[in-house]
Computed example of a mutant assay.
Amino acid sequence: MKKLTHIRLFVPAVLLIYAFTGCVSEPVPSFTADQTTITEGGTVQFTDQSTNNPATWLWNFEGATPSASKEQNPLVSYAREGEYSVSLEVRNRGGSNLITKHNYITVKAPTTDLIFRNKTYTEVLITLGGIEKNIPAGQEVTYHEVVGKSVTFNAETSGTTAEGSILGVELGWSFSIELNGGVVTQDLNVGTDFFFLYITNNGTHVLSPLEINDGSAEIHTENVSVPADGVKYQIGYYHAWEETQVRGYYEDDPEYCTYWNHNEHFFFPNSINQCVNLSNSFKKSAWTGAVRSTGGVEAGHLLPAGPYMPEAVPVEGVIQYFAKRR
């Protein structure tokens, strides 16, 4: 009888255990993210999609903050570029299961649209990331979706004027720009150490060649012709030094030239993107019969007329005479 009593008590116990455990299925883990590709510093909202009623959640986030969470639907952030895995373990009375999605989140470095504005008087060749672009004077170009937090670029004047002349000193830039993940504008300016030279020949003699002595031992000789047509011609960039002198020789009488001396016939505006326009005219002197050169000068800097077009600002006029070639 004791044995039978023991059996009656044991069988209900087994049935009771089955009633509480055998009917609970193990949870099946699953999850989604509101975005799987973000930029550095971005956040991702994870949503639990597990079935069979999990009671607890344990998340692990590679490369994220926080790196782990017990919340059902956590929000995490990623600071550095890369590809990162995510795992979720869910548990209930029926057991536990784990799912891992490898390289599930892609974090990219921020991209920036970088605009270069050429405020010089010549075409500029710019190189960024191995890509070269030409920027005409007074215009701009854009490099789209530049990656990184900073970038180094190189640029140089081609020495080519709007008229196609390759004259003067070639100028260059090379430095780093901080990027912000939006739009960054970089102006290309020329400092007060240089000036851009224009010549307007209102006289009767074609001027050729030109000589520009910028105060150094070297004299720039430009084998170009400036016609006597009253048109303002671009010449090029030169050093803006106190001893600067510009000479234009008469093409038909090279023993003579017209000349302009700094601080005597023209002055530098001492502003960025400065330019000087030297002009002259010729007439007969009634009492000597000699040819006299009457010169004028205007100087200025690049102004934003329209978007970024150059414009000279008049300063004053002067008189200077012809001279015999030295």
Rank of each mutant, 00 (worst) to 15 (best):
K3C: 03
K3F: 13
L9H: 09
V11Y: 08
A13D: 08
V14R: 04
F20P: 03
C23P: 00
E26C: 05
V28S: 11
P29T: 04
S30K: 07
S30F: 00
A33K: 09
G41V: 02
T43F: 12
T43E: 14
T47I: 12
A55T: 12
W57N: 11
N60D: 12
N60V: 12
F61T: 08
A64D: 12
P66N: 12
E71W: 11
E71N: 13
V76W: 05
A79N: 07
G82Y: 13
E83P: 00
V86C: 09
V90A: 04
G94D: 10
G95V: 10
N97W: 01
T100C: 01
Y104S: 07
I105M: 10
I105E: 07
I105K: 05
A109T: 05
T111C: 03
I115N: 10
K119M: 01
K119R: 15
E123D: 03
V124M: 09
T127D: 15
G129M: 06
K133V: 02
A137H: 02
V141K: 04
H144Y: 14
V146P: 15
V147L: 07
N154L: 04
A155F: 04
E156K: 11
S158H: 01
S158M: 05
T161I: 03
S165E: 09
L167V: 12
G168S: 08
G168T: 09
G172A: 08
W173R: 01
N180H: 11
N180I: 14
G181I: 13
T185K: 14
V190T: 05
T192L: 01
F195M: 09
F195A: 06
I199M: 02
T200K: 15
N201S: 13
N202D: 10
H205E: 14
H205Y: 13
H205I: 04
N223Q: 14
N223V: 09
S225T: 08
V226N: 11
A228T: 03
G230Y: 14
Y237L: 02
H239Y: 13
A240T: 02
E243F: 10
V246M: 02
R247N: 05
E251A: 13
E255H: 05
W260E: 02
H262F: 03
H262M: 08
F267C: 00
P269M: 01
P269Q: 00
S271C: 00
S271K: 11
F282P: 01
S285F: 11
W287C: 04
V291K: 13
G295I: 06
G295V: 13
G295C: 12
G296Y: 01
E298K: 12
A299V: 00
H301P: 00
G306A: 02
P310I: 03
V315D: 01
G317R: 06
G317W: 02
Q320P: 08
R326C: 04
R326N: 14
R326T: 04
